[in-house]
């Protein structure tokens, strides 16, 4: 598709990788939109997605070694799990709560990703609890002498939780190979960041735990990737954790049950829509001769077709067996 061997800016990415990043961002966007649409059609009871945050997700996950490194996402991270190896089919099966969904077989809400083979750790809806788990996987990697890195994602809202503090403190003490990624989308549902923290950049907190914190334009996928690359390399060299604050914006309501018109102006949303990370990356690639209009449209078509095919497959897949609701409480399945 493109012939250059390295991206402009010296990040070490090939042209194919750049196109793949764009593809994953567009795919994440399209899946989020599809799940919301299925919700409005009455086919999915609940949707929580991350349109607008694709650069922060894809840019960070792209620095990991899929299947080797530990991935601890939160409930907007469609872009993350696509980079690691989940497919549109996996995500639509999960959204439609089908029995064969690898994430939970219809037990967890949509976007609560899990995939043991890909080392994507199952998450709860309680924010910040997963940050501690990533510190635990990283702690085990260190104890076992393995050169794995753990990466954990969370929103700005999670930075207020005690678990965030406990996790970062523990990681700092032991110099663990973990990367904390805050997708700072500026709202904890309706509460703006100014009512969540008294600092301009929450990354400054890293200093209090004894490791570096960086703030990056979360809508610039290459800037995000650059920070993540550096953080992952540091972690893998045994130099400890990094906190990455990716400043971004959620272009959609918190969930399908939220009406964001009650807490933010349409002008504000419009302003951020102009900084859409996908449009921005497409423009960058076009400027550098890596993408033309036809290639862009072809990619959009491919994404649409894949999401359509995944939707069709998932809609036709069987629902979970109702009696399976009693399974997997314990390993031996004796129940209580």
């Amino acid at each position: 598709m493109v012939s250059v061997r390295e991206s402009p800016g010296g990040l070490g990415l090939t042209g194919d990788q750049l196109m793949d990043m764009l593809y994953k961002m567009m795919l994440a966007r399209a899946i989020g939109q599809r799940v919301r649409m299925l919700n409005r059609m009455g086919k999915v009871p609940f949707a929580v997605t991350g349109e607008g945050q694709e650069a922060a997700q894809v840019g960070t996950a792209y620095a990991l070694a899929p299947g080797k490194d530990w991935v601890v996402p939160y409930y907007r991270d469609i872009g993350v799990v696509l980079v690691i190896g989940q497919t549109p089919r996996d995500l639509l099966l999960e959204a439609l709560a089908r029995g064969e969904s690898v994430s939970s077989g219809g037990r967890n809400m949509p976007s609560h990703f899990s995939d043991p083979k890909l080392r994507i750790v199952s998450g709860a809806a309680v924010v910040a609890t997963q940050i501690v788990h990533a510190v635990g996987t990283a702690f085990a990697s260190k104890l076992r002498g393995l050169d794995e890195v753990s990466m954990v994602w969370f929103g700005d809202g999670a930075t207020s939780e005690g678990d965030c503090h406990e996790a970062m403190n523990f990681a700092g003490i032991h110099g663990l190979p973990v990367v904390f990624v805050c997708e700072h989308n500026q709202y904890a549902i309706s509460v703006p960041w100014t009512k969540q923290m008294a600092v301009e950049n929450v990354s400054v907190r890293a200093q209090g735990y004894g490791f570096p914190g960086v703030t990056v334009d979360g809508n610039d996928v290459l800037a995000v990737y650059g920070s993540a690359r550096e953080a992952v390399d540091r972690a893998r060299r045994g130099e400890g954790p990094t906190f990455i604050e990716a400043k971004t914006y959620r272009l959609v309501p918190h969930t399908s049950d939220d009406d964001d018109r009650r807490y933010r102006s349409r002008e504000e949303v419009e302003k951020w829509a102009k900084k859409d990370p996908i449009i921005r990356f497409q423009a960058y690639l076009q400027e550098h001769g890596l993408l033309d209009a036809k290639e862009r449209d072809d990619l959009a078509m491919k994404v649409a077709e894949e999401v359509d095919a995944a939707t069709e497959y998932a809609e036709n897949a069987p629902l979970p067996d109702p009696e399976s609701a009693l399974k997997h409480v314990f390993a031996e399945e004796k129940g209580r």
Binding site: H133, V135, T137
Partner: peptide, 10 residues
């Protein structure tokens, strides 16, 4: 929480 995470990783 750290025990949980570590238990996932052997």
């Amino acid at each position: 929480g750290v025990a949980i995470g570590a238990s996932l990783n052997g």
